[in-house]
Simulated scan of single mutants.
Amino acid sequence: MIDPLLIHGALELERTDRGLLPHRLPAWARAQSDDPQLHHAAAQPAGVRLAIRTAATRLELDVLPTKRRYVGAPSRPDGWYDVLVGGELVERHQAPGGNVLHVDMMTGASTFDAGEPTTLVLTLPGGDSEVEVWLPHDEQTELLALRADAPVAPLEDDRPRWVHHGSSISHGSLATYPTEPWPVVAARLAQVDLTNLGLGGSALLDPFVARTMRDTPADVISVKVGINLVNQDLVRRRALGPAVHGWLDTIRDGHPETPLVIVSPIHCGIHEAVPGPTGVDTAAFTEGRVAFRAEGDPQGAARGALTLQAVREVLAEVVERRGDPHLSYVDGLTLYGPEDAERLPLPDNLHPDAATHRLIGERFAAVVAPGAGQAGRAGRTVGGSIISPEESACR
């Protein structure tokens, strides 16, 4: 059994018959929803990594991955394991085999095929080294065993702790490697210890997620919300403001003065002025591509249906009205706006590619680093302000 102290970025480690299964929501929270998508997302170890100190030159890691295959769509590549030594990437590995979850995107039905574990062999430089093995961000991974040719010890991390919640964009959709999602890019640049609660399709203001964040140690917290609310056509404008206030009240119960950043949606052309729901582009699907389209009524915004433009207005109003000196707002358009979309379009109309993840992460690093600095290091705070596009771009 792997020492749980070697695993960073998970909120719970489930002991299975074979090993440890990282979860990014605790069991009590998962029990409050029967949404399969949420459960799949929370079990995918985005931001979870093994963090060890060792002089070993060889590590063997036994894993049992669970891959997703979408019926009728091109096969997804196996997930990647990024190996970092002293913060620098030295190797990348994939784990063939494992379990397979077959998902029909048109009906939501799924079937499961059990598979066998894989052993990853990692080559290290030796000497006293800080080693991280970042697990696949979009592939459930059960950790079975770790063997080394020298002693291994938990790597202590005294950096400021950043807890982030968001949608599939924060989770890392369309990023290939586990160090590519924008929160990981931002965390590495800002030198903070990331707990990534990006949950694909499930940034829906669920109260149990707010309570989870309330109870999770943090030196800086960020919440990126909006796109999934529009995707599912879940709430109307009237309900959004009070729901966000309630979320913030809950987080503040556990973190009364922790720097807290509200981030509105990045640019997404299909939903800037057209409400949800979001549907699969059937024409693209018949061509073997996955793409999305807006299926809402363009006139619905006048009756309170949410567009991304409306979400940004409401979130800015909430932050301004609360008068919280430790609360900030970041306009998502400063992270990825219309001009960026012309140069780096969203490949499926909804999710950024690796280059765009990098861009967003680089821009957000300048926000999260001062916030963490207020609690744990010297640095400039952005607390209590509504950050304009011009101010954010100058960071």
Results as ranks from 00 to 15, higher is better:
V263K: 06
W162E: 00
N99P: 01
A187R: 15
M1K: 08
V90H: 07
D353W: 10
P325I: 12
V163C: 00
R30I: 10
Y81T: 07
H245E: 14
V330D: 04
L229N: 06
G288N: 07
R303D: 09
G108F: 07
L260R: 05
L359A: 13
F112V: 11
E116W: 03
L359N: 12
H267Q: 05
A31Y: 02
P178M: 08
L327Q: 05
L333E: 13
D62L: 09
R312T: 11
G373F: 09
R236A: 07
D297H: 06
A186T: 09
D331E: 12
P36S: 08
S168R: 13
R18L: 09
P275F: 15
L308M: 12
P389E: 03
T250C: 05
E14N: 10
Y70R: 13
H351N: 06
G323K: 06
E362F: 04
L174Q: 08
Q37V: 15
L5F: 02
D353H: 14
E139I: 14
L240M: 13
A305S: 14
R15S: 13
I7M: 06
Q32A: 03
F112M: 12
V367W: 00
T57S: 07
T118Y: 15
R238W: 07
E156N: 00
P183I: 06
E339S: 10
G373C: 11
E313N: 02
P370N: 04
P277W: 08
G9E: 10
W247C: 09
E391R: 06
A51N: 03
D3P: 03
G226Y: 01
R238K: 13
R53T: 10
E317Q: 15
R395A: 13
D219I: 01
V209S: 02
V318S: 03
D331W: 01
L101Q: 11
A283Q: 10
P325S: 12
G126T: 08
L248G: 03
L20F: 07
Q191D: 15
S222D: 07
R147P: 02
D138G: 10
L234Y: 02
R49K: 13
A239H: 05
R322Q: 06
D157G: 05
R69S: 13
S385V: 14
S392C: 05
G200E: 00
A150D: 05
I169D: 06
L89Y: 04
G172E: 02
V290T: 09
S170E: 07
S129T: 09
D78P: 01
A378D: 11
E139H: 01
A372Q: 04
V131H: 06
K224A: 13
Q44L: 11
I262M: 15
V220C: 07
F292Y: 15
L143M: 07
Q140F: 00
